[in-house]
Design a binder for these strands. Structure first.
Lengths: 344, 344
DNA sequence: GTTAGCACTCGCACATAAAGAGTGCTAACA
DNA sequence: TGTTAGCACTCTTTATGTGCGAGTGCTAAC
């Protein structure tokens, strides 16, 4: 059976109506509310065809039609236009994103918040992966006899540090040598290179320094690198789930929270996703628990180096055009916002 | 009407049964399952008295009795014993608390997690208030011509820092002088003193240093202090709410999440609460949205200086004895755990 | 003071009925 | 040949009625 122009229009009308109301839509509704100039009977015939083609389903004999995942996929791929955000919306988003942000992670967290509020869905955002960040500078700052602070500065200016307790007192001179050596050995290396590579030990001539390096500094160094590499997952708008009719059933709501609680898993899944705007619909999500959800993600870049993701998770019946636009606008603006506020 | 020994026993039986089953309890149930040696009819008479005294309520004429808030209050104040945790439970808690913790905040977050799992309720924990923390050491570390890292180390060893962009290049000498001065002026002061006090400017002799100090260092200093003072609220076990019959109604569940979402408010409320173990039952919580919940909080101390809170929120029908014991055990162990793992 | 007995009250689960929305088919029409 | 009106049929939803069970409150006897 061929897809005709008219079938497409009817399908679009059905999707649009169902997205709005969450109720199966009947032929009369389409005929009344969408000016296609054809009678309910004709629409019924077309609907019957569309069902045979796999674009519609029938909850039961005597109810309206519901778009299938195949229909959403067609809609997203072929029929959906970008919904340009209004100037007001853009301003609102920008204002809230730019407001008083001092840390990149902070900005990302806020992006999740804004995203969830605008879409009324559950939003998430991943702080940037820093594998490709390069080390710039390493220092050991004596605080007291047995305490030094190990500080690592990355090329993008991110600072991280740990207080390290020493076995034995260290002279400032020793610390200076160690720090200088580490900076020399590691600056220009990426964080993951530094973490994976064998620790470079080239002060064998100084037994004292060497012992301390081995026992105290190296563990602290690795710990700090790991901290810097950590990717945080922020989620927001969890309670939005309750305003979605699909989840008015307590069991389903519970199921949703069960998914959402497995943060570690989500984090991994997100990291695996391809770059750019990705929409997965229902069963396209490997996870069986997500079979009734769609996920929209987009990738942001800061400085062309740091890379992270954000997006929303909601019922397959979501406003893909709107959501896509907001997600895109946010990612486009994240690096911009961050430069303006001049965070570290 | 007087409270008698027997009435107390019956009330305790009713509370205990209702806490377990969430169903109104009838006279037969009490007579069968609790060996009080009296018949249902007698129990009915006593129940009737207890109702008149305000300890029981009656959902409708032909159903069992439900304890009132007044009953829970009596129970908590007079009848409840501490439920000693089993050695196994203690070990389990300790193991999970001590496991691989490197940061205090981390430990607190985990405490919330453990607490929610053990009680099957929603748990929260507040990272310690650091108002009383004293500054130990301040340093300015040059990274490149226009970038320095401002580092603050507190007496308990917590390190915090910000990268500061400079208007103009600064000599290492200038930075050294500034850092030395700041350490001299602020070490021994508490964080909040440092934040509130006027900035001390005593290098008027050096116009160059002074200008940089004013324009770049001071804002970074204040920002860092504020960061250090920030109190984080961790919540865990949100989805536990779904296994509580009281919240099988979607509207109530939604209401619960509405409360939980107002993190800022919760944080403030928690900070205001008195020290020690505090139990508020139903309407005793000012917040109308919490009128059907009870909140149990306890205070922990680290090093006798840092102070924070943790606790649970659940239905008025909760196992107060168990919850109290767990909460108490956790707070007692937090500082201990932290010393053992040798965190910063 | 305690207890057995019994009438009475509700709430709940279940069945049944009526209403409403929507389809699918048939036959007529342009 | 495509479109439409008409109508029987299906299935869900909502309202209504009924019986059952749990539990009380009262009375009278112990």
């Amino acid at each position: 059976m061929d897809m005709t122009e008219r079938k497409l229009k009817i399908l679009q009308a059905i999707i649009s109506d169902f997205v709005r109301t969450a109720e199966p839509v009947g032929s009369r509704t389409i005929s009344r509310n969408y000016e296609l100039g054809i009678s309910p009977a004709t629409i019924r015939n077309e609907m019957s065809d569309l069902e045979e083609m796999g674009y519609l389903t029938h909850p039961h004999t005597s109810s309206g039609r519901v778009p299938s995942e195949k229909a959403y996929r067609l809609y997203v791929n072929e029929m959906m236009g970008r919904k340009e955000l209004s100037a007001d919306q853009k301003e609102e988003i920008a204002r809230r994103l730019y407001d008083n942000v001092t840390e990149l992670d902070n900005l990302i967290e806020r992006a999740a918040h804004v995203l969830s509020e605008i879409t009324s869905l559950t939003a998430f955002a991943l702080s940037p992966a820093k594998e490709m960040e390069k080390l710039r500078y390493i220092d050991l700052i004596p605080v007291d006899e047995r305490t030094v602070v190990l500080m690592i500065v990355s090329e993008s200016g991110k600072v991280s540090n740990t207080a390290v307790q020493l076995d034995r007192p260290a002279s400032e001179e020793t610390l200076r040598i160690l720090a200088k050596n580490m900076t020399y050995n590691y600056s220009g290396k990426t964080l993951s290179e530094a973490l994976r590579s064998d620790i470079i030990r080239n002060f064998r001539e100084d037994a004292e320094a060497m012992a301390m390096f081995e026992n105290n500094i190296v563990p602290g160094f690795l710990r700090t690198l790991e901290n810097m590499l950590n990717v945080n997952l922020y989620m927001d708008g969890l309670s939005n789930i309750f305003s979605i009719p699909e989840y008015s059933d307590i069991e389903k709501a519970k199921g949703f929270f069960d998914i959402i609680n497995r943060k570690e898993e989500i984090r991994k899944k997100l990291i695996e996703r391809d770059d750019g705007i990705i929409i997965t619909i229902g069963g396209e999500n490997q996870d069986a628990d997500l079979a009734e959800c769609s996920v929209v993600t987009a990738t942001y870049h800061v400085d062309g180096k740091l890379v992270g993701k954000l997006g929303v998770i909601g019922p397959t019946r979501m406003k893909y055009d709107e959501v896509t636009s907001v997600v895109e606008y946010l990612t486009d603006n994240i690096s911009k916002a961050f430069m303006i506020t001049g965070g570290d």
